[in-house]
Computed example of a mutant assay.
Amino acid sequence: MKELNYNKICVSEISGRYINYDHLNEFLNALPEDFKIKVEGKSVRSESIKSIEFGNGSQRILMWSQMHGNESTTTKAVIDLLNYLKHDNLEVNEILQACTIKIIPILNPDGARVYTRVNANRIDLNRDAQELTQPESRVLKRVYEDFKPDFCFNLHDQRTIFNVGNTNKPATVSFLAPAFDVERNNSPSREISMQLIAAMNSKLQEEISGQIGRYDDAFNTNCVGDAFQMKKTPTILFEAGHFKDDYQRDITRGYIFKALLKALQTITYNQIKEYTVTDYEAIPENGKQYVDILIINTDFAANKLTKDEIVAIQYKEVLNDAQLKFVPSLHTFEKEPVEIFGHKTLNCNDEKDIEWLKSNDLLNLLV
């Protein structure tokens, strides 16, 4: 199969972390007529929740992104996927003959507008699968029931704190085959989820070896992925994570795109059985050993340098006048790991690092 030139596929006009429907509408409205756009319902603040449906195949795939409004990397990836699948070539035609795909690019448009995880009623939609208290949750349930998918792709972002296993590799992409019961047993649908993840992992390992993790599979019936797995629909959780210096996640989006395309290829060419549950279980679980900035060799009480003193800093993402700012703050671990990694490590014995701290107004965090 011919290798794709992702740079020609990426919709670079849609970039950065702050994404709402204003950023997508021009692209969506220019899609070919075979891509059927539908308003599936309204958010708390009456913004339209849109879907795009295309393809004519028997394998039905439902994807939704930005269930959490501040998790936009996978939204960019599905836009790239749409950009690829609108072209007329042999592989695209084969996918569209085998699959019918429905994508909700932003399920939580109110949260997307103000860059919050929750919706306008301050409810986490991914904890509302059973009570269905929110209009956005009810939209997703109705779409699921009407579309009757054979596969569900639940698309999210994860924090920069995650590493792969106990290594110093960041979890650039993580996957999960959600559990369907408290004991986290396997079922036919869950095993299919695992096999598809193994297929995507095999592709990503070619490009970001060691940077693919497995997300925690603790069971929660209120989570949408677990709820759909309980209904015997193979469901996959995608978590877009950190790549070196890619805080806008415009590199990670490419890996999510390639994972999505690999999943579609695997379904199209009936290759799921080529991958095993064992392949999935070999993916290391995520650790929580990273911080954005690790400052070493500082003892601010005695005003001298010692090798044992460290300061961990994590960015808070703050929206200000439609611009996303990364504001540093001291970080406290839920459970401090044996070893801590920094996406950027600064040594107070190094004058250049001290100058960087000064120029970025971080010295005030050390006192």
Rank of each mutant, 00 (worst) to 15 (best):
P337C: 00
D299T: 11
R190T: 05
H331A: 10
G210Q: 04
V118A: 12
L204R: 10
L365D: 02
L324K: 09
T298D: 14
E40Y: 12
N347K: 04
A199F: 08
E191D: 12
I310N: 09
N163Q: 09
L155H: 05
Q314G: 11
T116L: 03
D34C: 13
N320V: 13
K50T: 07
K307V: 14
N166Y: 15
E206H: 11
S46T: 09
I272M: 02
I197E: 03
H156G: 01
D279W: 06
L363V: 07
T167I: 13
P178S: 11
E274L: 13
L357T: 07
N163A: 01
D157V: 02
L81W: 05
T235F: 02
L324Q: 08
E145L: 15
I310P: 05
K232S: 15
K76G: 02
E334H: 03
Q205S: 11
F257Q: 00
L140H: 10
Q205L: 00
T133Y: 06
L4W: 03
D245E: 14
N222V: 03
R45E: 15
L204W: 02
V291Q: 03
Q323C: 09
I310Q: 11
K169N: 15
I161V: 13
E26K: 15
R159N: 07
N349K: 08
T160G: 04
P32H: 08
F228W: 12
R184C: 05
D245M: 12
N5Q: 14
V92D: 07
S12W: 13
D292W: 11
Y18I: 13
N220P: 00
W356F: 14
R117V: 07
T133Q: 11
K316S: 14
H23E: 15
F54M: 02
P234Q: 02
M194D: 01
A263W: 02
W64D: 08
N119W: 01
Y215F: 15
R142L: 13
P32L: 08
E317M: 09
C10G: 08
K288A: 15
D299Q: 13
F162D: 07
